[in-house]
Design a protein around this nucleic acid. Sequence first.
DNA 1: CATGAATGAGGTTTCATTCAT
DNA 2: CATGAATGAAACCTCATTCAT
Lengths: 190, 190, 190, 190
Amino acid sequence: MSGAPQRPLRADAARNRARLLDIATQEFTTRGVGVSTEEIARAAGVGVGTLFRHFPTKEALLQAVMVRRLETLAARTTRLAAESGPAGAFFDCFRLVVDQSAGKNEFTRALAAAGMDAHSALREPSAVIRDKLAELLAGAQRAGAVRPDLGLPELIALLTGTTAATEQLGTDPAARERVFEVVLDGLRPR
Amino acid sequence: MSGAPQRPLRADAARNRARLLDIATQEFTTRGVGVSTEEIARAAGVGVGTLFRHFPTKEALLQAVMVRRLETLAARTTRLAAESGPAGAFFDCFRLVVDQSAGKNEFTRALAAAGMDAHSALREPSAVIRDKLAELLAGAQRAGAVRPDLGLPELIALLTGTTAATEQLGTDPAARERVFEVVLDGLRPR
Amino acid sequence: MSGAPQRPLRADAARNRARLLDIATQEFTTRGVGVSTEEIARAAGVGVGTLFRHFPTKEALLQAVMVRRLETLAARTTRLAAESGPAGAFFDCFRLVVDQSAGKNEFTRALAAAGMDAHSALREPSAVIRDKLAELLAGAQRAGAVRPDLGLPELIALLTGTTAATEQLGTDPAARERVFEVVLDGLRPR
Amino acid sequence: MSGAPQRPLRADAARNRARLLDIATQEFTTRGVGVSTEEIARAAGVGVGTLFRHFPTKEALLQAVMVRRLETLAARTTRLAAESGPAGAFFDCFRLVVDQSAGKNEFTRALAAAGMDAHSALREPSAVIRDKLAELLAGAQRAGAVRPDLGLPELIALLTGTTAATEQLGTDPAARERVFEVVLDGLRPR
DNA sequence: CATGAATGAGGTTTCATTCAT
DNA sequence: CATGAATGAAACCTCATTCAT
């Protein structure tokens, strides 16, 4: 049920695994999911065999990258929520998730296309985020900062959509800001 | 300069071409751009050779699918714009474009990834849409129905984003409606 | 047994056949046997179907081109042999055959590679040349102008070889001339 | 700059590479450059992937075969030149090159047809041969054994041509010998 | 007869994955 | 455990040949 290793990895093995994850994240994000396993292994300075020892499948690697992203996101979300009032926390987190999710759609889609239920492997880490987001949404709604009829699914869809929108505007920060304003304004009770 | 064929295609050729486009649209949309040319040809009931006679490259096929979508879209946009007042036309078109664009991101992305300037082949049909949208935006802004600081790029990004968001909500019309409300509300001057 | 058409071709059909042969000769010679039937047909201004009506196979077309070359060659050889004395006729013909055979190796090889006995279809026209050459060789040997131990096969091999050699020197006429001198000198009794 | 592998190949890899080269040489020579990579791989007892790991392109394989032939040739030429006097060395080498060059024309032609400068990849090994031949030619000319007006290009063309001629006479050693006599005699000062 | 659209086997090449070293 | 050579299915595309128009 858990992704945690059976026994603690040897030091060098752990180093290789971490390095592979880092490189894979970077390559998948910048060059798409089409990059070959061979290239990722080479960029990480290991042989393909090592890659496949740690991740039995290319898809498993994709999954692991996703999981780590979600975990990082969950951690930062938690931290942020603790620092501001309910409304501020909600809007800050919205921005944070969007900024951190660049490229995520590609992964989700790749996993989905491979016919696998995205929820099976990502259930645990994404559940953490969902819970955080639900909590933040409820808080902001109680504080009257967000329209009360909005549900969690819509919030997540809007996060995905805003990610897509801002990705398309990569080079123009002012335009990205205006897009944020539109969506965040729209979230307020009318 | 024109997309129209040099001579009228023979009856069977036209049938095959149309059928290929239909099948390709469907396959690309439902299963992603990874589907093989061979499968598309088989699904269309023709040999691969026929596919490649009509579209000399897989990318050319993708392009053709895109072009047809954009043309359909442009036609409907024009019709709608004529029927309502400036504000109504703008909001109606926004919905229309989003509804018609399901799956389009995949294509745009695929074309971009293939290193081709999306504007080269799609320039004409997409320019028509851009012009329409720019016109509608200006009209709605003049009518005070849309915040005046919004530019065309942001509008297009928001269209893309809203498409992504509603795609994720496919099964729940009420939730889709709430997403639309958020974005359309956000577009109004605050 | 004969390549002559069963009945006289219609005027346009004959024109097409001739044109196809001309174009095919040119394309095969300048661009190699790799040129596609489609390209040859297009260059000849007819559809592929027409090409295949006249020549049921690409190989048949190659054959026809060869045959025509050989026939032309035979005719010129005959003419030349009548005009000079035995020695002169021999050496003139040697040069003529070499000059006219540029590119011929490609064809011979293509036919051979296709697993067909080159002699089956080319037997008749090439027999004419062989006879001419045999006659010329005998005459020149009687006149003491060519070493008496040389047989017809060696003569033909030397023709092929000299063709290959001069083809490699295409751009430099003086060098070609020196190659001719070497071979023709070598043919004389030592 | 060097053709030597960066690190010593693993034992099996080296075996496969050598075997591929051997088989490719044989197949290309006996059946033409048309043989498919798949067939070569199968004949060598490896998968296609292995073939393409060693030679990233069919052309690269052709090149490698050529290079090996030329290198072998250069080595033998060097040895021979050291053993005989200037005239003997020249004539011996002429025969050696011709005997070793059977089929070489096919490769050269294939490479040329593929639009690649034959000199780019083969520059080094073929330069060695050219140098050797130039040296031998000069020596034989100084010794008065070869006509003084003959240049290196003509010599090479004659080698090519004699190769073509003797190839055609494969089954009859006496005829081949007579062809050699004609050419070698022609090379002597008249 | 001419046309050119359709066919599909076959060619080259890539890449996730396995396994000998 | 790490390595990277080997594998072979599958992708895209070409082209000789057939046959409906």
